[in-house]
Design a protein around this nucleic acid. Structure first.
Lengths: 196, 196
DNA sequence: GTCTATACTATGATAGAC
DNA sequence: GTCTATCATAGTATAGAC
């Protein structure tokens, strides 16, 4: 049986067809998971290889340097972000509500890689910072289109950022807020948006 | 001339008397500055000693391990946070406004050490996580006392978190929001607080 | 495509001179 | 109280076997 070309694999991924994860994907997921749970310091190539279940050499075949790992994580985020922006723009509830509602942690691929890139950006990794700038710029643009008052739009943006900040932070404090009633929070968003 | 006891030095600091910074303080400030600007990975003992202008051995006299450095940063944060909570509770404008207004980056010692501890917490440093939990718990308590509607209080808390998230993140995106009109944002806070 | 073995460098920490 | 060695370990990366 012929193996799939890299392009065919990528298409399969985009189209959501399930298949056994490749070693490359296992490595990338492991690296992102370590960044999220333990930070940049703990996300070493050694730990990544161990978590992915491959040897260091195996990892280095797919990602010849640590920076290559970071670039791949960023690329995955930007792919997922584009799809998210499209959903946000088309959301019947409006971009503002969509944005805040989806800013609580869900165990989506998007959240997983967003949080990983936030950790990279916290280490002043320039491409990670640039990627976050781009993602946030898209969000801000869509929320501003949805909310007439720019100051209300800013407040709503900040509520979403606050939720994400919680989601990327360990500790019990973050749980209490994130676990709280999202419906009630969306009502606050409506209040700001309606600007009465 | 007799040198001051450690206690006398601490009293002088609390009372705000100016004096030449001790080597210990220079080291602590340097470590916090590195955490803020470049993250946990870059905040090595080597880099800290170089930035503080002392040798590695000199640093290790004051802080015998890296964890001792982290503990000292956390202690400084908790000291500053207690003073901040007292000001917040006594603020004529109310805790909610005070909280949001002071969540934008000012170059205060409090902000400096808050951001440093956020970076430590992002690396899953347990005492750092616990310290942030405590600080945020105080803030939340005071804002809830100030804002009748608990859901409005939550939205206001999140706005403040969002501002801090911006402040601790490098990149141009963060500048545009943080630099925006704080007065207009406080009006949004009033709208939420009044709950009409 | 994945592995082992190995080299090089950075990091955290110790010992002891001044 | 601050310095200069010095060391053990961990992290990044290379070379080459399978």
């Amino acid at each position: 049986m012929m193996s799939m070309t890299a392009e065919a694999v990528e298409n399969a991924r985009v189209e959501g067809m399930s298949r056994p994860p490749t070693a490359r994907e296992k490595i990338l997921d492991a690296y992102a998971a370590l960044l999220r749970s333990d930070g940049e310091r703990a996300a070493t190539m050694d730990a990544t290889a161990a978590l992915a279940g491959v040897s260091k050499g195996g990892l280095l075949y797919h990602f010849p340097s640590k920076d290559a790992l970071a670039e791949a994580v960023i690329e995955r985020l930007l792919d997922a972000a584009q799809q998210d922006s499209e959903r946000m723009e088309a959301a019947p509830e409006g971009a503002a509500r969509y944005y805040v509602r989806t800013s609580t942690v869900e165990e989506t691929e998007f959240d997983s890689f967003y949080q990983a890139v936030v950790r990279l950006a916290a280490g002043a990794h320039a491409p990670a910072v640039a990627a976050l700038d781009q993602v946030h710029g898209d969000w801000e643009r869509l929320v501003r289109e949805d909310v007439a008052d720019p100051h209300a739009a800013e407040a709503i943006m900040l509520i979403g950022e606050g939720l994400y900040y919680h989601s990327t932070m360990p500790g019990t404090w973050s749980r209490s807020l994130v676990g709280s009633d999202i419906g009630a929070l969306l009502e606050q968003v409506d209040r700001l948006k309606e600007g009465h």
